[in-house]
Design a protein around this nucleic acid. Structure first.
Lengths: 348, 348
DNA sequence: TGAAACTGGGAGAGCGCTCTTACCGAGGCC
DNA sequence: GGCCTCGGTAAGAGCGCTCTCCCAGTTTCA
């Protein structure tokens, strides 16, 4: 019973025979292109249902040069000795799960399947570029974690549809969707200072990453407007452990800090741990604000006040831009900037 | 310059012309099938290099019925009202990142690309089954989170290569790689009792999930051998929040508990939070052991003693089984059981 | 030495689909 | 009434690749 089904799926030819029309007509009905007489259309549809016909993707892509697939490329440096490779770092950040989930669900609505690619070594990056350039996928959703990542440039050069999460570190003609990171940081600063904190400090991400820099600058900007000329800070790598050591360093240098703004939730979580170890109460002695509104924000005690990135919406917007670009390849790259919101919980 | 490259990639025909041989010969050299005279081979290889030829996947799959792709299917129930959908739950569990990372890297070695599929609604599951059955991918790596998930059965029935992470809840003819969950739980019990704990309790996962049940039973088994006839327990859903409420419930019912074994690290993290809130010191008053050795295990204070799943190895083994099955479709489903190890940190 | 076996290479038939081209009948126009 | 247009369909040429023949040249063995 499954035998015949599996051995040879019904083809256009089969449907055409059943419906008593030509292959071309069936193709037209299936793809909804050009007008087909309603009566014929019905006959064909019935034949399709009867045979259980589903188009063969390989055959279709061979002629259309479309694959119905999009690459999700996670780019980053390879693991330096003793470090975690970037894609792994990202994979263990629950916030990233929100983004990927958004990709998968949005792509599905367009009937596009995501192919997961890691560009974690130079060879892997080369392979990825080749794969994309050859048209094995219709377009690329790129998440780059590295400041001096050459991949955005190479992909843009390849002339195939690409949309980045977050803007590229250097100016490169590529579409992207980004958060108004500086605005988010201002939200955090305003909130903290509005609650009467007088000695804010920062745990920043790697400053060669635009998002990290924008957040730091946004925070400093609003602090300056409120009369705080200098905000002590320490940089880390967006990881929990990095957040811990940077916090320790910050508190060591500036013991009077009564508010900490962290570049993401993972580092904020690290800050929370260090603060507790040092016997500082949160939020009584030190208030903490994170960034992302990652699932970890409610897995801390106290729950983390944070700046929410609408990750799923951003993912959907990226997919929209990509699909649009796939259908209309011409035109300049486009960008969408999304506004973050403040989510107040118990750490402030 | 890129114009000609992009507009039409070199084909076999082009290479053949440059090398002065037939298409078939180039194909033979490229695919390494049948013997080709060394001299000819060299000429062809040079022509390939000169033209920058890379085979067109669509054309190749059309005739070989191979796609060079494998699906990574994350299956689970849709979100009940107020609940998180299973794939999202999994996506925010850093342990899952280790598994997916393992898939991607292992598949890459076999030159296979992963396509990410969520089966989070009945419609999505249907789509996924159709997609797989039609041969849009060569095989499937299935991660199912749900006890009564029909997907393993449906996939097995489809007669296409499938390998599961963890054994299916009901007996179904499908290959899988699983952890010796009961052994892991025994390791935990032995460790806890060996350190003189006398009143162990458990936070289990959903008991319709084999892994959760095996862990619970393994723990009870060793406890019984050490004279502990009854181990109080509370069930949760493998999430942080679930771990919290289950721990609260457990301690409410059995306040004398001096050791807690949690079904995974996320729930152990929840337990840690609740214990601190209740003023119990860890490990002095209550020792805690988790399961998975997820990245969160070192993001808790104290660091979590846990049972390590060699996720990357398991992923690699799954890929190995899958590739083998793709190449040799006949034969009964195969299984591999992997042994866990105890990782002692500060929570015990 | 002749036939059989083997070896390496070419020709060509598709794989299942889309899309251009050609065709055909019906209706509108002068 | 003849011509043209136009909607609707069929025919057929590929897309780029693999793979099965088939053939020519060489080796092997009786």
């Amino acid at each position: 019973m499954t035998e015949d089904l599996r051995r040879s799926a019904p083809t256009l030819e089969d449907v055409a025979r059943v419906a008593g029309v030509s292959r071309a007509t069936v193709s037209r009905v299936v793809n909804g292109k050009r007008k087909v007489a309603p009566a014929v259309q019905e006959t064909v549809l019935a034949a399709v249902a009867e045979t259980g016909y589903v188009p063969n993707r390989a055959a279709r892509s061979l002629v259309t040069r479309r694959t119905g697939m999009a690459a999700v490329v996670v780019s980053g440096s390879a693991a330096a000795p003793g470090e975690e490779a970037e894609p792994s770092r990202l994979l263990s950040d629950p916030f990233f799960g929100r983004v990927v989930g958004g990709f998968v669900r949005s792509l599905r609505r367009h009937d596009v399947h995501p192919v997961l690619l890691f560009a974690d070594t130079p060879e892997a990056a080369d392979q990825a570029v080749t794969y994309l350039r050859l048209g094995n996928v219709d377009g690329t959703l790129l998440v780059s974690t590295h400041g001096d990542d050459p991949l955005p440039g190479r992909l843009a050069e390849a002339g195939r549809p690409v949309v980045m999460f977050s803007r590229p570190a250097r100016p490169v003609p590529v579409s992207f969707v980004d958060l108004a990171n500086a605005d988010g940081a201002r939200l955090a600063a305003e909130h903290l200072l509005g609650r009467g904190r007088t000695a804010p400090g920062m745990i920043t991400g790697p400053l060669d990453v635009p998002a990290a820099r924008d957040r730091a600058e946004g925070f400093r900007d609003l602090a300056a407007r409120r009369g705080h000329a200098y905000v002590p800070s320490a940089a880390a790598d967006f990881t929990f452990a990095g957040g811990e050591s940077a916090t320790a360093e910050l508190l060591d240098r500036s013991p009077g800090v009564d508010a900490v703004f962290a570049g993401n939730d993972l580092m904020a979580q690290g800050a929370l741990h260090v603060l507790r170890t040092l016997g500082r109460r949160v939020p009584e002695d030190v208030a903490v604000v994170g960034f992302d509104d990652s699932p970890v924000a409610t897995q801390t005690r106290p729950h983390l006040t944070t700046i929410r990135q609408p990750a799923e919406d951003m993912a959907e917007t990226m997919v929209g831009l990509l699909v649009d670009r796939i259908e209309h390849p011409a035109g300049p790259p486009r960008s969408v900037i999304v506004e973050p919101t403040l989510v107040i919980r118990d750490s402030t």
